[in-house]
Design a protein around this nucleic acid. Sequence first.
DNA 1: ATTAGTTGTAACTGACTTTGTTACATCTAA
DNA 2: TTAGATGTAACAAAGTCAGTTACAACTAAT
Lengths: 140, 140
Amino acid sequence: MQFSSRFTIATHILLCIAMFQNDRKVTSDFLAGSVNVNPVVVRNVLRCLSSNDLVRIRPGVGGAYLAGPPENITLLDVFRAVEKEQTLFHFHQDPNPQCPVGRTIHSVMDDKIETMQSAMESVMKDITIGELLEETKQKM
Amino acid sequence: MQFSSRFTIATHILLCIAMFQNDRKVTSDFLAGSVNVNPVVVRNVLRCLSSNDLVRIRPGVGGAYLAGPPENITLLDVFRAVEKEQTLFHFHQDPNPQCPVGRTIHSVMDDKIETMQSAMESVMKDITIGELLEETKQKM
DNA sequence: ATTAGTTGTAACTGACTTTGTTACATCTAA
DNA sequence: TTAGATGTAACAAAGTCAGTTACAACTAAT
């Protein structure tokens, strides 16, 4: 099981906006062309990013802009904006409380899973759209 | 999106085997009762664990046993045994190569995602079934 | 050899999620 | 008023997960 592609799509979108927002109007159709998905998918992702104050969208006239400098947007911001279900693992429901393992499994495992997730998120927190933008420009 | 519950189910199963294998025959029905899922789900997970040499199963006569001491089984072993799709994120297919972002997004993002996953896996590697067993016994 | 108890595994279902798509209402500036 | 956007509901196709049934195959004990 994996996280959906919304995270990579959202990162792609933010990079595109950062790259092009000063030169042209960055519409959902333009973004859809670069990411190569349906414009509605882009608009749904943009809505998530917008409601988390990462981008500003101009309804009617069109165009998306970063809400702040790209150095201030971390991949953790992006992840939290687009992934509703942010716990890493499903836990099986209703383990048998009459079994000593079933009775305690949650209290034993919950903080382990949290540690795993924190490890992942601390990496995300240290990577910004600004860095990725620089790296992209170097590779152009 | 999340990983399936197979990981927590597998961990539960291993803890149960470690806890009870010396006292009674640990069948898939017994395990199913503790985890509170269908015995076929247990047998499927057991097959994954067995083919990765974490447990031994006695066909015919019945009963599952740890293949080695619980201190030698890490949560990363468990994770790799039961999760076929082990990359953390779906990547959107076919970004547009005519866009500078689309052309480079993979080479920019791939190692970042790998770093995130490594961070998670290094936590998994440091937690063993033996530790969880001790913690369970303390909480009983 | 038979039997009871167990595992191995295929097949099917329902529920859910993701992704793609269409359609249309709404908004804004020119 | 209009052109060009965005907002969003609705639906379908595909995939995955989990539950269940059913039955073949295996093993030890009798």
